[in-house]
Computed example of a mutant assay.
Amino acid sequence: MIASQPPQPQPPFGPRPRAALAMAARTARQVLGSGALDRLSALLDLDPQLVLDDFTIPAARRVLADAELLVTGWGCPPLDRRVLDAAPRLRAVVHTAGTVRHHITDACWERGIAVSSAAAANAVPVAEYTLAMILLSNKRVLAMARDYRTERRTVDWSGRYPGAGNYRRTVGILSASEIGRRVIALLEPYDLDVQLYDPYVTAQDARELGVRQVGLRELFATSDIVSVHTPLLPATRGLVSRELLAAMPDGATLINTARGAVLDQAALTDEVVAGRLHAVLDVTVPEVLPAESPLYTCDNVLLTPHIAGSKSGELRRLADLAIGEVENYVAGREFAHPVLHDRLDRSA
């Protein structure tokens, strides 16, 4: 039986719980720099030089035998039944990134292992990126800058772009995920009308968020910008269909910082090549498009290489949140950012 509620961290076996780092070596260098390893070493009995990216090697078997806690990151192998059999004392996993789907298996939930994630920290830069793109897209900044660079003269910009500007424009948010909610909060100071589609959000939730709740087709048909924040799940693959894209008003913008497979990329390509829609795409399928893809050269498409999430100095925020969760574990407190097994069917 898999518990529907997350187990709570238990008091550690000793003054400093035995722990290990489980992630790609590159991840450890990037995320756990700037003193983060020293802070972890003060809290945990771990070898900061040993980073496990393969649980089958002898060194990993030795460490797993006594480990109470794993600090994981991108590149951590799956914690399957065989790994857990080699880690009989394991009680908790603190993940220094967002989704835990790649390494937390059903066996972990069955064992009652407490899991925490830094998804809340990773949501911050994605929401900031999205806010910037919403404001720039409504203002038609990129198009005007391109024209100005080419023509180098005085132009009646209001006449050329009569719909440009953010005042009372309608922004549609697809999914009140962690990131979606942050975007809604960041939009609050602006004179924008924000509406939301999320089947799990109640009318009371929508009122508290300060958004208008609409149906899926209405979101696309009545928004100047639709920003996609739904996780990629079996039920959401291809959710942004050709029909929904066709319902968007002429000149509207589609922003996707979620996952490329959430939308019908071929249909979106047809719409932007025809010049009817604009798009801001930080994610695609495949993650690096073929060199001949028209999305690279479409003037009405801004294509970025999956940079909305934590990068460079922003990675410190992930480490800080994870270290805070380790401090909670060591003190016997509940995780502040637990991963709830019974919500995995609707979260990333």
Results as ranks from 00 to 15, higher is better:
residue 198 D to E: 07
residue 162 P to I: 08
residue 240 V to T: 11
residue 196 L to A: 10
residue 87 A to M: 08
residue 241 S to P: 01
residue 220 F to G: 07
residue 186 L to N: 10
residue 294 P to M: 13
residue 299 D to E: 15
residue 214 V to K: 14
residue 234 P to G: 06
residue 143 A to Q: 15
residue 246 A to P: 00
residue 84 L to S: 04
residue 117 S to Y: 02
residue 247 A to P: 03
residue 186 L to D: 11
residue 314 E to F: 14
residue 331 A to M: 03
residue 180 G to W: 12
residue 283 V to Q: 00
residue 321 L to Q: 14
residue 55 F to K: 03
residue 245 L to I: 12
residue 336 A to N: 10
residue 311 K to Q: 15
residue 181 R to Y: 02
residue 8 Q to D: 04
residue 154 T to W: 15
residue 206 A to W: 14
residue 191 D to T: 06
residue 135 L to D: 09
residue 249 P to R: 15
residue 25 A to D: 06
residue 259 R to I: 03
residue 31 V to E: 01
residue 50 L to G: 00
residue 244 L to H: 08
residue 209 L to V: 04
residue 85 D to I: 02
residue 281 L to D: 06
residue 68 E to N: 03
residue 24 A to D: 13
residue 198 D to C: 04
residue 67 A to L: 01
residue 250 D to A: 15
residue 121 A to R: 07
residue 101 R to V: 03
residue 308 A to E: 11
residue 312 S to G: 03
residue 202 T to V: 00
residue 181 R to E: 14
residue 214 V to W: 14
residue 155 V to P: 03
residue 143 A to G: 10
residue 264 D to K: 13
residue 265 Q to K: 05
residue 331 A to Y: 00
residue 226 V to E: 11
residue 233 L to N: 06
residue 150 T to R: 15
residue 336 A to I: 06
residue 83 V to G: 06
residue 258 A to T: 00
residue 84 L to P: 01
residue 135 L to P: 11
residue 92 A to D: 03
residue 332 G to Y: 00
residue 219 L to E: 10
residue 310 S to C: 14
residue 257 T to V: 15
residue 203 A to I: 01
residue 12 P to V: 12
residue 348 A to M: 09
residue 71 V to W: 09
residue 248 M to I: 06
residue 169 R to D: 09
residue 224 D to A: 12
residue 51 V to P: 12
residue 54 D to C: 01
residue 100 V to R: 04
residue 47 D to R: 12
residue 241 S to F: 08
residue 310 S to P: 02
residue 250 D to E: 15
residue 4 S to K: 02
residue 255 I to C: 12
residue 233 L to V: 02
residue 156 D to L: 09
residue 317 R to T: 07
residue 342 D to E: 13
residue 258 A to Q: 01
residue 112 G to T: 07
residue 249 P to T: 05
residue 252 A to N: 13
residue 275 G to P: 05
residue 56 T to W: 02
residue 87 A to W: 07
residue 259 R to A: 11
residue 148 Y to E: 11
residue 248 M to Y: 07
